[in-house]
Nucleic acid binder design. Sequence first.
DNA 1: CATGAAAATTTAAGTCA
DNA 2: TGACTTAAATTTTCATG
Lengths: 161, 161
Amino acid sequence: MELDRLDRDIIAALVDDARATYADIGHQVGLSASAVKRRVDRLRETGAITGFSARVAPQALGWTTEAYVELFCQGKTKPSDIALAVAKFPEVVAAATITGEADALLHIRATDVRHVERVIERIAAEAFVVRTKSSIVLSRLVDTPPGAAVPDPRNGSYAGG
Amino acid sequence: MELDRLDRDIIAALVDDARATYADIGHQVGLSASAVKRRVDRLRETGAITGFSARVAPQALGWTTEAYVELFCQGKTKPSDIALAVAKFPEVVAAATITGEADALLHIRATDVRHVERVIERIAAEAFVVRTKSSIVLSRLVDTPPGAAVPDPRNGSYAGG
DNA sequence: CATGAAAATTTAAGTCA
DNA sequence: TGACTTAAATTTTCATG
């Protein structure tokens, strides 16, 4: 799907504040409220916008500890096997297969270090896991909601900082 | 701040759909619309909810490639130095100092592998950076919005998972 | 002190040119 | 696309347990 500058500006505005009114967004990007609504509806239909979500402060909800865990798996392990195994844990907020020595990298949020330890133990118990390598997060420096900046492939600039 | 079960249910509902009406949320959690609004206002004031954001499909916006980059820094480097340096790049969507051999871990989103390479080059050029170690993401397995599950410290259960 | 119900205002959603 | 109309939601106010 093709996105023009207005679409990217609208997306940036909605990433910044998903509850902004169509009139407000229209004022920001230079469109009428009804034009903005039509574009937002279209962006949702085409899948560019997948939904709207509250941003929460993890530590305020009790998620005070996070960790990154590298997974080293047996030779024949399929990505879908890993996905199925780790998706069971609400503590695993992100997971991806990666290049390099490790096969996958997990991002874990937990209530404390003991909790992290428990989750890693249970993941390490999966049949395909050979070993794990964990890094506890000491301090978070950056945490940008994905899509806060929208790249323009044509000129390398960004909308919405 | 103290969160009861209703607060956690409301947060879970808003993480799932930030544009749900107060009446809908009230129906889900067993409250009237005005009671829900009061609690949401309070959750925002106290900082448990930091805002509302559109969820976007990064690949639909041109962010087709992502990478994790370990940063090895000089002995006297402060976390704030790293934060300042990497926050300049919209491609750096997350960064944290971590335990282990590396000093920091960056999460980068870019338009393609060449773009990732360019960003890493510019970060590696920072004075405090000794070396970097990169892993390109092959396939994303899990990507949960933070707060999709809200832990209850009292009994170890979750709301909205 | 938080809740539910009602009133007033604002916004969303649909239709027209 | 913008302007207008109707329906719905938000926001405020007020009374209750």
